[in-house]
Amino acid sequence: MRSTEDRILGVLRWAVITVAVVVTAGPLLYGFLLSLRPFQSVLTEPLDLLPSPGEITFDAYPTAMAEYGLGGNMWNSLQVALATAALAIVLSVLGAYAAVRLRFFGRDVVNVVFLGVYLLPGIVLAVPLFVLLSRIGLTGSLAGLVFVYVAQTVPVALYMLRTYLVAVPSSVEEAAMIDGCGRLAVIRRVVLPMALPGVAATALYVFMIAWNEYLFALLFLVADRDRWTVSLGIAQLTEFSVPTTVLMAGSIAITVPVVAGFFLAQRLLVTGLTSGAEKG
C-alpha cells in the first residue's frame, strides 16, 4: 500500500516533469511556430499558437537570410567558429598531452594561469582587448576575434581533453616510441586516433562557444556590418523595427547547428574509448 506521502510525492514528481518540459522546450517551439506565421496574424492573434494550415509560410527565412543579411553573417560565424575550434584543438591537444604525460618545469604555474584565465570576467578583459586591437588596427577583423576566442576557450578545452587523454594507455605510446616514433609522431599517430571521440566532442564544444559568442563580436565588429557574426546580426536587428517573425526565423536558424552538434557530441561521447587497443 502506498502511503499518503508517496502519493503526494508521485503527483509532485509528474508536475515537476511536466512544467520542466513545457518551460524548457516550449520557448524554442514557440519561436519556431511564430517563424512560420505572417507577421500581421501574430500581431492580431497572439494566442493562436498553431498557424492555421492556410497561413503557414516560410517567407521569414529567406527574408532574414537575404534582405536582412543574416546569411552573410552566418558565413562569418561559420568561418570564425571553425577556425577557433581548429586552432583551439591543435593547441590544447599538445598542451593536454604535456599536462598528462610529461613532467616539466613550470607545470603547476601553467595550471594556475589557466585556472585564472577561466575565472577572469570576459567583460574585464574586453576593455584592454578593445584598446589593444584598435591600437594595432585589428578591430573589425575576424582574425582578431578568432585569437580572443581561442584564448578564452583553450583552458576549458585543455581541461576536457586531459580526461580523455588519461584514458589512453601509456604502454601503447611507449611501444611506439621504442619503435622509433618521436614525440609529435606519437601524438599524431597513437594518441590522437585513440582519443578521437573525445577530441571531436571538445571541438564541438569550442565550436558552440564561438558560434554563440556575443560580447566580443559586439565590441570588435559593430561598426563593420559586412563582418558581423550572426549573433551580433540578430541582436542588432532587434534594435530596429524588424518583424518579430524574421527575428524568430533568425533565432531558429542559428540554433539548428548548435542543437545538431549537441546531439552529435552526445553520441560521440558514449562511443568506447580505448577498448581492445592493448593486448593483454
Binding site: 598542451g95 613532467r103 584592454p128
Partner: peptide, 30 residues
C-alpha cells in the same frame, strides 16, 4: 621530457599570455 613538455605547452601559453594575461595587466595599468 622537460624540454618536450615546455615546447608543447608553449603555443597555448603564448596565446593565453597575449590575449588574456597581458590584457589583464593592462586593465590594472589603465
Amino acid at each position: 621530457e622537460d624540454r618536450d613538455g615546455r615546447l608543447l605547452v608553449a603555443p597555448t601559453m603564448a596565446v593565453v599570455l597575449a590575449f588574456a594575461v597581458l590584457p589583464f595587466l593592462a586593465v590594472v595599468l589603465f
